[in-house]
Design a protein around this nucleic acid. Structure first.
Length: 551
RNA sequence: AGUUCAAUGGUGUAAAGGUAGCACAACUGAUUUUGGUUCAGUUAGUCUUGGUUCGAAUCCAGGUUGAACUACCA
């Protein structure tokens, strides 16, 4: 492992190890299966599993499935898939619902200790007597029921004698506690609902606070890492463990990592899916792990990103440019180069007499082992519309009347003329080539400033390319006023037909490419040999575009 | 209002009382058969006021600013 300073959690762990407070590290990743995992979860996965790896410990995957009305098996499967794709394997797979019996026993124990009671108040009454910030709450009339009566009532709750909402089990702590969560929190509620794993066995379900810490404890989790909003829950977390006299797991909180131009609210993500703003949870514009995967982001780049942004306790909004940097950095090393023309204009080489030839092209200049392929060349080519200007500025290093460029992997050509249609749109560009300027054996002595990509017209295939841009128009959509729907980038997806070199026909799902000078693309799962489909992952850095923007 | 947490270049993150560093972004320049990559460099930071100390981003006190908490969600 390379030299790197410790983050605050690693410091805690190393200190715990040194002082003997713990003998090993055991973490867990505890998603609720009620949605797809997003970029924030990815960072959390890297943190928890990464810590286990680093300290030779263990990390469990545990589904926090204590609310039967929102959780589904579909989500369980997507979550497992995402964790594995990110490159991690759990030591144990658990469900909080595995512990329903144990948790019920814990509740009985609290009742017997006089620390829990059955309350008959409605949700509204409980809220109304909760007090307020700075104002103490009022004790429920049911608070002083006898242990026997509580035991009896709780048994009846479990047996299904009561309707939803008719009774709850509450902890007996302190209705005047400055921490609202400590004001006799609800432990169990009645829900006559079918659970995705336990079926209809239960009609009472434990609340988060009565399930999470105990689940950690049951699994002997040493470092239970969660986000900052749970910091107020920590006294409760500790209280239950202490009163129940069970394994002392400890909770540590870090600030959730936000990324500019992205949202991580499950509710809002679901809204985008439901209102068909995107095609689904794995739409390549979604900040979900499945969306980013389909977009062409690699697991390595996500892991590296998580590592780079680090971990701390202050609120943050990481520039999406850093994520994009990590994606480019990885793809630059691994993506095979190919040529495609997205916005084509015809180029005719008037002095090229041959029927065509095959040219040798390297697959990846960053990787010696990537090898070479043959690409067909001919008299008529497709080039990018952007690569020709009728009246170019001085620093334009591409084609224009009288200008010379290198055709990548091929010859140097000089522009001799062009045709326009009635609308003034260029239809064909004419040029002459220099036969002695062939790549690899250039004896022409001609120096050119620019090199452009091309696709041979006679052998070109067509493909659908889906060009993606940021989903939102504002840097911090989560904090923006009103509906997030007001901030959707109308150009977040544009679909075009491109000409591609023949070698691309055999690509498989999620193969990564760099379309020369355009950006990184990957094969979409919609792709077929008859109709290849590519997603634009991210463009190349473009200092020419930057230059133009300044002007 | 009460409690809790936080505050370091534009952004993210280090420095455990001793040279404020790294990455991204931005900007120069070099290299380049991708205006990519790579390389070299530049700009730019400790919320504030006191205190302790030979010495404070770090410790202490006050202030300021931001965030979280008042679900039978997690």
């Amino acid at each position: 492992m390379e030299e790197r300073s410790l983050n605050f959690i690693e410091e805690i762990i190393e200190n715990d190890l040194k002082t003997g407070k713990v003998s090993g590290v055991h973490t867990r990743f505890p998603p609720e299966p009620n949605g797809y995992l997003h970029i924030g979860h990815a960072a959390s996965i890297c943190l928890n599993f990464g810590l286990a790896q680093r300290y030779n410990g263990k990390c469990n995957l545990r589904f926090d499935d204590t609310n039967p009305s929102t959780e589904e098996t579909e989500y369980v499967e997507s979550i497992m898939n995402d964790v594995r794709w990110l490159g991690f394997e759990w030591d144990n797979l658990f469900y909080a619902s595995d512990y329903f019996d144990t948790l019920y026993g814990y509740a009985l124990k609290l009742i017997r200790k006089g620390l829990a009671y059955v309350d008959d108040m409605t949700a509204e009454e409980i809220a109304a007597t909760k007090g307020d910030i700075g104002i103490p709450g009022k004790e429920s009339p049911a608070r002083n029921r006898s242990i026997q009566e509580n035991l009896h009532l709780f048994e009846e709750m479990k047996a299904g004698k009561y309707k939803d909402g008719e009774k709850v089990l509450r902890a007996r702590i302190d209705m005047a506690h400055p921490n609202l969560l400590m004001r006799d929190p609800i432990l169990y509620r009645i829900k006559h609902a079918h659970h995705h794993r336990t079926g209809d066995k239960w009609c009472i379900y434990p609340m988060y606070d009565f399930a999470h810490g105990q689940s950690d404890s049951i699994e002997h989790i040493t470092h239970s890492i969660c986000t900052l909003e749970f910091i107020h829950h920590r006294p409760l977390y500790d209280w239950f463990i202490e009163q129940l006299e069970i394994f002392p797991s400890k909770q540590y909180e870090f600030a959730r990592r936000s990324v500019s131009y992205m949202i991580t609210s499950k509710r809002k993500l679901l809204q985008l899916v439901n209102e068909k703003v995107v095609s689904g949870w794995d739409d390549p514009r979604m900040p979900t792990i499945s969306g980013m995967r389909r977009r062409g982001y690699t697991a390595a780049s996500l892991r590296n990103f998580a590592d780079t942004i680090g971990i701390a306790k202050r609120e943050n909004l990481t520039d999406i440019a850093l994520l994009e940097h990590c994606v480019r950095e990885d793809l630059n090393k691994v993506a095979a180069r190919a040529m495609a023309v997205i916005d084509p204009v015809k180029l005719v080489i008037t002095n090229y007499e041959s029927d065509g030839e095959l040219l040798k092209a390297e697959n990846n200049p960053e990787d010696d082992k990537a090898g070479y392929r043959d690409i067909p060349f001919g008299r008529e080519l497709w080039i990018e519309r952007d690569d020709f200007m009728e009246d170019p500025p001085k620093k334009y290093f591409r084609l224009g009347p009288g200008l010379k460029v290198r055709l990548k992997h091929a010859y140097i050509v000089e522009c001799t003329g062009f045709d326009k249609d009635a609308d003034g749109r260029v239809t064909t560009v004419y040029c002459q080539y220099f036969p002695d300027s062939k790549s690899g054996s250039d004896t022409s002595g001609i120096k050119v400033k620019g090199t452009i990509h091309w696709v041979n017209a006679a052998t070109a295939l067509t493909a659908e390319v889906r060009l993606y841009d940021r989903l939102f128009t504002v840097e911090n959509p989560a904090a923006a006023e009103g509906s997030i729907l007001d901030y959707i980038n109308p150009e977040s997806l544009t679909v075009q037909t491109a000409y591609i070199e023949p070698s691309l026909a055999s690509s498989g799902d999620l193969d990564h490419f760099q379309f020369l000078r355009l950006g990184y693309f990957c094969t979409d799962r919609d792709s077929t040999p008859e109709k290849p489909v590519f997603n634009k992952t991210i463009g190349l850095k473009d200092s020419w575009a930057k230059e133009q923007k300044k002007a």
